[in-house]
């Protein structure tokens, strides 16, 4: 469970920018949350603070009761490795590594033995539908496939929370559908907690809940009905995971 209390972030400068102006909310484990709002509303800034990529100016972030907002740089790095997963807007993979090498990198950093991390990452690559692309270089994968490798990498450490910052921003319609269904499936099947930033309203229908931001404040919460969710899974972006894989 994530509990955020009065989170503020100000970027200093000649004219300080107050990106987050006291945000509070709770997210139970296993929930798929979409964070929405116009540009400059503070949604990416919020994700950076929650994922420990940046330090909040003030406020508290509790993850399963542990305050992670004040961790030192070294401890924050270790925490990200062990408990968090992050999917970036662009296909943030290492081009010198092939698909499975990108996926197992966190496990190698955790010190898992080679045989084991290959087994775990292969299994996860199968789950994201890329078992036949394990040894392809990143340049040989489509945008959607690259984003699925990034999802596999974010989940390979059995992360408590998966953060996704506009994961479909650079994808075509078909691949958007593939990635969103995959995230939904991970939430349903594995009970994965997911926080996804998006600015496309259709994408929120794959989530359980939507947090609307404006000018650095949480202005509205919305829960997505099961029927809307089901409809999005079956008809959203007019494709199907299995058919596209074929």
């Amino acid at each position: 469970m994530i509990k955020v209390t009065d989170l503020k972030k100000t970027y200093p400068g000649k004219v300080p920018v107050h990106a987050l102006k006291g945000v509070s909310f709770e997210i139970p484990s296993g929930q798929f949350v979409a964070i929405m709002g116009p540009s400059g509303s503070g949604k990416s800034t919020l994700l950076h603070q929650l994922a420990l990529l940046d330090k909040p100016t003030s406020g508290q972030i509790l993850l399963d009761g542990i305050d992670i907002s004040g961790l030192s740089q070294g401890k924050a790095t270790d925490f990200r490795l062990r408990y968090l997963g992050y999917v970036f807007q662009e296909y943030a993979l290492i081009p010198e590594l092939n698909a499975i090498e990108n996926a197992f990198l966190p496990l190698m950093l955790l010190g898992m033995n080679r045989k084991e991390f290959i087994r775990v990452s292969t299994e996860l690559m199968g789950r994201v539908g890329l078992v036949d692309r394990l040894h392809h270089l990143i340049s040989e994968l489509s945008g959607g496939e690259q984003q699925r490798v990034a999802i596999a990498r974010a989940l390979v450490n059995k992360s408590k929370i998966l953060f996704a910052d506009e994961p479909c921003a650079n994808l075509d319609t078909e691949n958007k559908g593939i990635v969103l269904r995959l995230l939904r499936k991970l939430c349903n099947d594995l009970g994965q907690t997911i926080l996804m930033v998006t600015h496309e309203p259709e994408q929120r229908e794959f989530a359980d809940r939507v947090l609307w931001f404006r000018d650095g404040r949480l202005v509205k919460e919305e829960y997505i009905g099961k029927d809307v969710q089901e409809d999005a899974i079956h008809n959203g972006y007019r494709t199907d995971v299995s058919s596209s894989e074929k």
């Binding site: 990529l53 070294g74 270790d78 925490f79 990200r80 490795l81 943030a92 290492i94 990198l105 450490n157």
Partner: peptide, 13 residues
């Protein structure tokens, strides 16, 4: 540079 940022983001020292 971006890759290095990403490597740090996934927990690489």
């Amino acid at each position: 540079k971006k890759q290095i940022g990403i490597m740090k983001a996934i927990g690489m020292k």
